[in-house]
Write a protein that binds this DNA or RNA. Structure first.
Length: 237
DNA sequence: TCGGCAG
């Protein structure tokens, strides 16, 4: 565990990552570390959650994303305060009391105010990278304001200026099909350019990542099926 | 008190 920790640190050093500021807050025996960091791609905020049992999870947000997130925190907190006492009778099927989605820098973040036996909390989840750890945190609803205030401090101090030249990637597109929505997001990492196709239903989300070098083959395969399908339709008529 | 239902 601490081996992995120091491994991370070393990797960060090697990547020229520097920490500009940090805030710590404790909400119901959970600790949150909000760090402003910077590497050659720009500034970002790292949110780390450490549970009572030492369980960790983290979330990375570009500054502009963090600003948008901050605004939603107010909204979610307002919504939370407007709720009556927990009422197991009329809880939505999926347990989500309010949902929002942030799309920035070709990444999707899902904000869900949820409720379980323990109480209400805001879950913030980013579409997971294949093979990587799931990227999500859960903030107890009682601490949303405090969380927002800490985030605001950092944003006020370090601005919302992001990596500028990074958004030369194509705009996201989406498509509604029956009861689902598909999102097409173009992103890039050290391995190259890729398309992330997310399928979003009311209570189910999943995504696949398609490397750019295989797009043409995807298109060809789709065309094949489309052509075959339209010819069988003709024959049927 | 301590935790957050997935594929």
């Amino acid at each position: 565990m601490s081996d992995r920790e120091s491994g991370d640190e070393q990797q960060q050093q090697a990547q020229g990552e520097q920490e500009l500021a940090t805030r710590t807050l404790t909400i119901q025996s959970k600790r949150f570390y909000l760090d402003v960091k910077q590497n050659r791609r720009g500034r970002f905020i790292k949110i780390a959650e450490v549970g009572a049992g030492g369980k960790k999870s983290r979330l990375l947000l570009a500054m502009s994303t963090a600003a948008e997130f901050r605004d939603y925190l107010t909204e979610f907190s307002d919504h939370y305060s407007s709720l009556g006492p927990p009422n197991p009778e009329n809880l939505p099927e999926d347990g989500k009391l309010k949902s929002e989605m942030i799309t920035k820098d070709n990444k999707r973040y899902y904000l869900d105010l949820k409720e379980n036996q323990r109480g209400r909390f805001l879950r913030v989840a980013q579409t997971v990278q294949r093979g990587g750890p799931r990227s999500q945190i859960a903030i107890p609803a009682q601490g949303l304001i405090e969380f927002r205030d800490s985030l605001t401090d950092l944003l006020d101090e370090f601005g919302t200026d992001d990596q500028e030249g990074q958004s030369e990637l194509p705009e996201s597109k989406y498509m509604r099909v029956e009861n689902k929505v598909f999102y097409f997001d173009i992103g890039s990492n050290r391995r190259g350019i890729y398309m992330r196709v997310s399928e979003v239903r009311s209570n189910y989300r999943t995504a696949i990542t398609i490397p750019e070098r295989s797009w043409a083959r995807f298109r060809d395969i789709l065309s094949e099926y489309v052509d075959k399908n339209s010819s069988t339709k003709k024959e049927g008529e």
